[in-house]
Design a protein around this nucleic acid. Structure first.
Length: 256
DNA sequence: ATGCCGGGTCCTACCCGA
């Protein structure tokens, strides 16, 4: 089974890129982040032509997640359990597919909104850990994948790409990412490539892509039984070199 | 370490991302 995640930075701008990638890679499931639209504006018909059903959790202008699937799925959650009901940010979709719980996430960046913005990120990560814990307690095979907006270690960013005060590298963010690993989840990319750059994002500015000054912030975390079935897990750098790309590339995970 | 790019929207100057 091929499962992928991609922050596309507007699904309407990236529709041709997504179509090309689906045809080339043929994933069973593709989780999208930053679709930046409400469900009526989502180009579901375009993906349906290629054999993919769309399930969308959208909002106007910002955020927004979705999953494209060519196998039967059941959407189980359209928001992260445990968050206040009045929190309308579209950042979470959870499904069941082939007996596996899959959570597609767009974790808050945490750099805007001052102290409150960063506190929101940390609270969101706390709720995510609680959700993971609940699913693992039931022995549900689980993958959490998406844009985590965390560089887990100093190897996950080019030297000097971010100041040490950035919300993507601050100790509190990294500690919460490690908490997910301590629950027994495996970082799929790092399981197969323990060290060295495996960037998934390059800023549009300052020549970040030609200079290869990237970040590794898009991840897939696997529960123990899924980790034993892991075949491959790789960022698809090629997409960053296409015309009018997203600033993120897809991360593709293959499970036996 | 801000806003150099590139999305979005009150359609056009400004907010946001990482």
């Amino acid at each position: 089974m091929k499962i992928a995640t991609w922050n596309v930075n507007s699904v309407r701008q990236r529709e041709p890129h997504i179509r090309r990638w689906l045809e080339r890679v043929k994933p069973d499931l593709l989780f999208l982040q930053e679709i930046k639209c409400e469900e009526p504006a989502f180009p579901a018909m375009s993906f349906q032509e290629l054999g993919y059903r769309s399930d969308v959790v959208g909002q106007k202008s910002y955020n927004g997640v979705a999953v494209l699937s060519r196998i039967p799925i059941l959407v189980t959650h359209r928001a992260l359990p445990g968050l206040p009901a009045e929190d309308a940010q579209a950042r979470y979709i959870e499904i069941l597919a082939d007996g596996i719980a899959m959570a597609g996430i767009y974790l808050p960046n945490g750099n805007s909104g001052g102290d409150a913005g960063y506190a929101y990120k940390l609270a969101w990560m706390d709720r995510l850990a609680e959700r993971a814990e609940a699913l693992l307690r039931d022995d549900t095979p689980l993958v959490i994948l998406g844009d985590f907006n965390v560089c887990p270690t100093d190897e996950d960013l080019a030297a000097g790409a971010l100041p040490p005060t950035d919300a993507l590298v601050r100790p509190e963010s990294r500690a919460r990412f490690r908490r997910l690993l301590w629950l027994g989840l495996t970082d799929a990319v790092r399981a197969l490539q323990p060290s060295g750059p495996a960037y998934t994002f390059w800023d549009y500015q300052a020549g970040a892509w030609p200079r290869d000054r990237g970040l590794r912030i898009d991840h897939a975390l696997l529960s123990p039984t899924l980790a034993e079935r892991l075949i491959s897990a790789t960022p698809d750098r090629r997409e960053r070199g296409e015309d009018t790309p997203s600033d993120h590339v897809p991360v593709l995970v293959e499970i036996s």
